[in-house]
Design a protein around this nucleic acid. Structure first.
Length: 508
RNA sequence: GUGACUGUAGCUCAGUUGGCAGAGCGCCUGGUUGUGGCCUAGGAGGUCGUGGGUUCAAGCCCCAUUAGUCACCCCA
């Protein structure tokens, strides 16, 4: 290749005509489905203020953003769509009656190492249902995701439903601090894939005080252990007492409060091991729960009872499963998986994913869930619940291809019009135009090729009809229409070409 | 971010122990004047990813770099 060639940027793709058509077709099927469920389209800019994603997108995504400073602004290429949609909602749509059903389609950007079915620019197509918290809303969104896939003709997919609230709630009760809580939430999936030991290892890396064995505290740590078990006021008094007894002077009430606060926080942070131990046990048990919805719900109930947790969360899931019943889904495709977790931190409730076996390791072609806090976090006027999902269009395309669903060649050229001599071009173009007015896709030879190579060309490109125009025909107002398949030729009036073609098509 | 493999014609790829840059497909032009699939003759098209190094000599050996593919991680 010549040295002046400029290569394509890494991790992004040219979409060539064949794939472009296929992907447009898929996109059309999806958006047609959205419309059937009363969703309406909107579009947002590709660049946003980086701030939009810093709060709630999850470290993994933030670390992989195309983030840059430009003329005193900090901007980024959007790494996902939901935050943009909610920003657009807050900017423009807060007066609209709820719920709002919105759908979108567009490119997003993540600086990841490219590999199969993973690109730095890809297309998300999805919906957001803003302003409804009920289980039937979750169920509707899940149904839309499912229906879209059905519409594309995809056969072999699996829908997995989970809930981030169960674990989150449990961890909150254990008083595990924020950082460790998000760590555990994010490692729920690793727990199932790689086992408890793996997660314990990683945990002690970010939290060295954690020891995998049940704590058997040395004497020196008894004090801190005692403090951890005390009530807030009791603990504060104890610390104050202790500090005074060893003659450390604390001046001014506010200062001593602050110092005690810090000490307490530190002490509590220092040993969360018992809580973590319990959390890990819980995660292990709950994480194994995966399978048919009814059975999973039954098992989950037992486990929650064992850990002494109220069952309200399960009622939500039960409600969703119930609300999905009337939709006539294929239930053997649907799993409940309480170990499911998602990378985006804004999810607060039900979450779900769709997987497909044909994608190799990148099996996920759809993901979504409920995010009731995002509107408030991003500065909305009211506390508005919302839920939504997004497909990865490229992955969906790959999945369909892996099922052998070849993109059928529609939109192919119907007629090739070729002039024999240069003088014949005006007449040829005129002929082409009359055919186009009738709705045929007509290609005119612009290379001034010989009759022979024009026919070769039509043959190679599967163009079913060739119209040849030479001076002999032109003088009589005729053309030569050649049907490529039968090799038959018709010397007919220019005005009769369209009728003859439809007639011939009809017979074939 | 970690690791493995690969970059030679538009495409798919050969290229021996370092010794003249190759094939198939595709493209263009012919094989009687204005007629396709087969056959046939010819042609265009290469800084051998890029930059260094070793050597009389490098597509081949060494170093760096860049891109692609795949896996881990994570996600759509």
């Amino acid at each position: 290749m010549p040295s002046n060639r400029v290569e394509r940027v890494r991790g992004v793709n040219d979409v060539l005509p064949r794939d472009y058509r296929a992907m447009r077709r898929i996109e059309d099927k999806l958006t047609e489905t959205f419309e059937l469920f009363a969703y309406v389209p909107l579009d947002m800019p590709v660049i946003e203020h980086t701030d939009l994603y810093l709060k709630k997108s999850g470290e993994e995504i933030i670390a992989r953003m195309y983030d840059f400073h430009y003329r005193n602004r900090r901007l980024c290429l959007r790494p996902e769509m939901t935050a943009s949609v909610i920003r657009a909602y807050i900017d423009n749509l807060q007066n609209e009656p709820l719920p709002l059903r919105l759908y979108y389609s567009g490119p997003v950007f993540r600086y990841e190492k490219p590999q199969k079915a993973r690109y730095r620019q890809f297309t998300q197509v999805g919906v957001e249902l803003i302003g409804a918290s009920q289980a039937i809303a979750d169920a509707e969104v899940i149904r839309v995701a499912y229906a879209g896939l059905e519409a594309t003709g995809l056969r072999d997919f699996r829908l997995v439903i989970g809930h981030v609230g169960i674990l989150a709630r449990f961890l909150e009760n254990l008083k595990i601090d924020n950082r460790l809580r998000t760590f555990l939430l994010q490692n729920m999936e690793a727990m199932q894939k790689r086992g408890v030991e793996y997660v314990k290892d990683r945990l002690s890396q970010i939290y060295p005080a954690f020891n995998a064995e049940e704590p058997n505290l040395p004497r020196s740590q008894r004090l801190t252990e005692l403090l951890q078990q005390m009530e807030e006021t009791e603990a504060r008094l104890a610390i104050l007492d202790f500090l005074q007894s060893i003659n450390i002077k604390i001046e001014g009430n506010r200062d001593s409060d602050e110092i005690i606060d810090r000490l307490l926080a530190k002490i509590r942070r220092r040993d969360q091991t018992p809580g973590l131990q319990q959390a890990l046990r819980f995660m292990d048990e709950i994480g194994k729960l995966s399978g048919a919805p009814v059975e999973v719900l039954r098992e989950a109930e037992k486990i929650l009872e064992g850990f002494g947790i109220e069952r309200a969360v399960l009622d939500t899931l039960r409600g969703i499963v119930g609300a999905l019943e009337p939709y006539e889904l294929q239930w053997d495709r649907i799993n409940l998986d309480l170990g499911l977790s998602r990378g985006l931190q804004y999810y607060t409730g039900t979450i779900f994913e769709v997987h497909h076996g044909g994608l190799g390791e990148e099996r996920q072609l759809c993901g979504g869930g409920r995010y009731d806090d995002l509107v408030t976090t991003l500065g909305g006027l009211k506390d508005i619940p919302a839920t939504g999902f997004s497909y990865g269009l490229e992955r969906l395309h790959l999945a369909l291809e892996s099922e052998g669903q070849a993109s059928q060649q529609n939109g192919a050229v119907n007629v090739l019009v070729a002039a024999i001599n240069e003088d014949d071009y005006p007449y040829a173009i005129q002929t082409a135009e009359t055919l186009r007015k009738k709705g045929l896709r007509v290609e005119v030879d612009v290379r001034h090729r010989s009759v022979k190579s024009n026919l070769q060309y039509a043959d190679k490109h599967n163009i079913p009809f060739t119209v040849l125009i030479g001076s002999a025909e032109r003088e009589k107002g005729e053309v030569v229409l050649r049907a490529m398949a039968t090799r038959e030729e018709y010397h007919i009036q220019q005005a009769a070409v369209y009728e003859r073609i439809t007639e011939l098509n009809h017979h074939a």
